[in-house]
């Protein structure tokens, strides 16, 4: 069972030796290179992904900041607009009230003036009418003499004027 067989030993050493020489020359070199290339590629990819993630996070943060800023700005604008609208409204209301008051006052004045005018006219009319009536009444009762006397008196009065 356990006997020396030189042919087996010889061929083992020869075939194994050739295998090792060939592997050392052609076999393992490219394989090691492939593995290293893959390792490098994977590492680069991971680094790139990491960088991209960081970039994305930075951008996200930036956008969030911007968004928050914009929100604050919008709030401010809204508040301002509201205030402006409020004040404008108050102003308009005040103005229109004033206008209305002024118009009312004007109308009242007009009315008063009209009334006064009417009264004046009425009074003049009444005086005329009463003068006419009085003249008619007096025409009948005044005699010539008295009449003349009265005209004289009026004339003198006019002359004084």
């Amino acid at each position: 069972m356990i006997a020396l067989q030189s042919n087996l030993m010889f061929w083992t050493i020869v075939s194994f030796g050739i295998l090792v020489l060939l592997l050392g020359k052609f076999g393992f070199g490219p394989l090691v290179q492939i593995l290293e290339a893959r390792e490098r590629k994977i590492r680069e990819s991971i680094e790139q992904a990491e960088r991209a993630r960081e970039e994305a996070e930075r951008l996200l943060k930036e956008y969030e900041d911007k968004l928050a800023e914009a929100k604050v700005e919008a709030q401010k604008l809204l508040a301002e607009g509201k205030q402006l609208g409020e004040s404008l409204r108050a102003e308009i209301i005040a103005k229109s009230e004033e206008e209305a008051k002024r118009m009312i006052a004007k109308a009242e004045e007009q009315i008063e003036r009209d009334v006064e005018q009417a009264i004046k006219e009425l009074r003049a009319e009444v005086a005329n009418l009463s003068l006419e009536v009085a003249a008619k009444v007096i025409e009948k009762e005044l005699d010539e003499k008295a009449h003349a006397q009265l005209i004289e008196k009026y004339l003198s009065e006019v002359g004084r004027i």
């Binding site: 295998l19 076999g27 394989l31």
Partner: peptide, 26 residues
């Protein structure tokens, strides 16, 4: 004695196969 027998042949085959497969992979 360096006569060839089936063990030797299998060794050749195995050396050839291992080299070719690794070469192919590389």
């Amino acid at each position: 004695d360096i006569s060839v027998n089936k063990a030797v042949f299998i060794m050749w085959l195995s050396a050839f196969l291992s080299f070719m497969l690794i070469f192919y992979a590389g």
